[in-house]
Write a protein that binds this DNA or RNA. Sequence first.
RNA 1: GGAGAGGUGUCAGAGUGGCCGAACGAGCACGCUUGGAAAGCGUGUGUACAGCAAUGUACCGAGGGUUCGAAUCCCUCCCUCUCCGCCA
Length: 435
Amino acid sequence: MIDRKQLRLHGDAMALALAKRGSAVVGEGSAWQQACHLDAKQRELKTEAENLQAERKKVSKIIGQKKAQGEDASAELAGMGAVSQRVKTLDAEAKEAEAVFVQSLLEIPNIPHESVPEGSSEADNVELRCWGEPRLDKVPDHWGIGEKLGILDFDAGVKLAGSRFSVLRGAGARLERALMQFMLDTHADKHGYEEVWVPAIANRKTMTGTGQLPKFEDDLYKLEGEDAFLIPTAEVPVTNLYQNMILNAQQLPIKHCAYTPCFRREAGSAGRDTRGMIRQHQFDKVELVQLVHAEDALLALDELLSHAVAILEALQLPYRLVNLCAADLGFSAQKTFDLEVWLPSQNTYREISSCSSFGQFQGLRAGIRVRDAQGKPQAVATVNGSGLAIGRTLVAILENYWQSDGSVLIPDVLQPYMGGLTQIEVKNDKKGEET
RNA sequence: GGAGAGGUGUCAGAGUGGCCGAACGAGCACGCUUGGAAAGCGUGUGUACAGCAAUGUACCGAGGGUUCGAAUCCCUCCCUCUCCGCCA
């Protein structure tokens, strides 16, 4: 959530910065315009209601005193009913205005940081650097590789749940688990993150705290009969661990890593990546989350990014680092670096981690604060990123470690987690017949 | 799922219509005391919004209602605990 005081004091500058995301964000009928319009109205109503309440409080006190002393209070009592009615009306109006105001505030995206490149689409994202030697020989799609090895089964996923679900078998399932363990161990033991294990279901308030709601309800799986959702990322529960808390300055930085399954409806991506494991309704991810002082946000982002990078480099997967332009920035993000892994079958880099700073945006929404030097609570800044998306990492390993005999080598660092297995061999087992 | 109890400030815990933003205590901070510490004494100690400020208003799980006036009475919902049932 953007800061309402900032909105009032520096509205024009904010509008300018927001427009980097696209003119519609601050255009006619936008939440931005509504918020600007409602701010003054909402305050006027509140002031009026408060004044009347003060009046009522004063007179009520006198009535109480008089009655206590057995005096006649009918003079004061007269007309108070009407005042009370008026208070009720005004108060209701003020509350309504406040609610609508906050609602529109919640629909305004974060303000891009000044270091975010301008742009109108993902084509304007800026490549910062590449690492590793991209493999340029002909490599089959990961689903082809996986099915030959008998470790990927998309038909089974469809049968059990529907499209965009898959089943891992044998060394594939083991590889998924190995990646999870390797990533968590690395972040917990080497990068200083405290591991947490959290629910994969979050309620509306929690979803609002990190910015998934109210705008993106269609992207979430909602639970029947309950006001709760399957989480699209561990960011949601992990960040909200500190929802409505005032932290001590010494507690920061807070660094958590967590594995969770993630659930996304992929409502807007019909037809994209329909084959394979790239875009699933359910996928595994190890997430990194940091809560820091506002002024440390961008430094923390660099640090967190290096932690995600460390996993890619340990796995010897070629990648490139991209600075997202304003138009491609997520709703809550202030600045985002994407890490894209090389997929030889597609002859391109594909996103495998997204590391963002949210500034105080989530801190303001979720009510996560820390006392400053004066003892006043200030919203914390949040930073998070994938470290990494496990399914896509598995895909990258299949393609980058594929050998022309059809087998796939296991990266050195994963072998201990695979029971010493050094490669996955082609299997010739026949599947049963579908009936 | 059934029955019961309960949700008050950092914690513990009073408060059943006005003198309650809220007792007493603990904790914490500062000061005094001390060779130093403990004890003791004193002072202070919530959040949000509006305002340059003085200050005002709101908040006793959430939302409604009754009343001139609600932490306190009524209704709805949420959550926690205990017992029973079911269950990985």
